[in-house]
Simulated scan of single mutants.
Amino acid sequence: MSEAKLDMIEVQGQAAVRVQSPDGAQATVLLHGAQVISWIPARGEEQLYLSPQTVIAPGQAVRGGVPVVFPQFNQRGPDTSLPRHGLLRTRAWTVESSRQEKDHAQVTLVFDDNAETRALWPHSFTVELTVSVSNTRLDLELYVQNPSDSAWDFTAALHTYLAVSDVTQVRLLGLEGCPFEDTVLDERHIEDHPEKRFYGEFDRIYSGVKDLLLRDGPRRLNITQAGWPDAVIWNPGPHKCAALADMPDADWQCMLCVEAAAVFEPITLGPEEEWSGRQSLVLLTD
């Protein structure tokens, strides 16, 4: 084991780290929000969507990649007065460690509570994101610890934006039989489609999701999660996309969010307790 090859770079003037495995797989992670904005498998192409109109700047959310949502998912969580999707995606993290082995490389970024976060949410916490790349695989692990002497609740997500060729042509397999809440229609059902298709605005929270397969023409992407009880599938559709200042009007066709999440039931951490959840993306090759 050795220290991973890390290239400190800038993206739109903001610090970022690029981690690369010996086989050439690489990921780029902003220190701003610990947000992964690029994943390129070995001998492959970009797998994540990043809006060409997004602005990467302190205090601003970045549209695309993998935003880290904590401790509040939208208006679901411990405190609806918190910023939408929480405290961490618009603040600077620090690189804690990195390592490289013969078949993969990884980097861990960390954020500890500070005076700014405690003014909004009066709790002590440590959150780490570990990003690992290897061949055709990307692993993202979110770790949360409560170092205080009192319990608190949180909701969270890895808000993964996947690049797709045309969202109306892709198929997502693995949701059949999973209960879901449709937040567009304000309805709850059980998914009865073996292959999910997307034609417009789509915003559903599923429970019991473990293993998904995205089919996009010849491309096949396996998406698994562990520790996360829920999954959010989202696309703004043409009308909502046109209202987003940080996304081209037609780019709803170029992306699909498949998010590992804890939304329906907040997670409770007692003093000195910890939790972790992992999302793994594997580009399948013949």
Rank of each mutant, 00 (worst) to 15 (best):
74 N>D: 14
124 S>L: 14
67 P>D: 07
104 H>C: 13
99 R>Q: 15
107 V>W: 01
66 V>A: 10
135 N>C: 05
96 E>N: 00
45 E>D: 15
50 L>F: 05
130 T>R: 10
64 G>H: 04
81 S>W: 00
110 V>Y: 02
114 N>S: 10
100 Q>G: 08
71 P>F: 02
78 P>A: 05
138 L>K: 05
99 R>A: 15
52 P>E: 01
58 P>I: 08
42 A>K: 09
45 E>Y: 06
112 D>I: 06
56 I>M: 07
72 Q>S: 09
88 L>F: 06
98 S>G: 15
55 V>D: 12
42 A>C: 13
127 V>G: 07
44 G>A: 11
130 T>K: 14
135 N>P: 00
87 L>S: 10
60 Q>T: 08
129 L>Y: 06
105 A>K: 00
49 Y>C: 11
85 H>A: 04
127 V>K: 05
67 P>A: 01
88 L>D: 03
93 W>P: 00
60 Q>A: 15
56 I>H: 10
123 H>N: 09
96 E>T: 03
65 G>R: 01
106 Q>R: 11
102 K>Y: 09
138 L>V: 02
104 H>S: 14
73 F>Y: 14
72 Q>G: 09
78 P>K: 00
92 A>P: 00
73 F>P: 07
50 L>V: 09
64 G>Y: 01
112 D>T: 12
56 I>G: 01
112 D>F: 02
108 T>M: 14
84 R>V: 10
92 A>V: 00
49 Y>E: 08
89 R>A: 09
105 A>N: 05
136 T>I: 01
91 R>G: 03
115 A>D: 12
96 E>L: 12
52 P>Y: 06
65 G>V: 01
104 H>E: 12
71 P>E: 09
71 P>D: 08
65 G>I: 04
61 A>C: 04
119 A>Y: 04
98 S>Q: 14
93 W>N: 05
70 F>V: 05
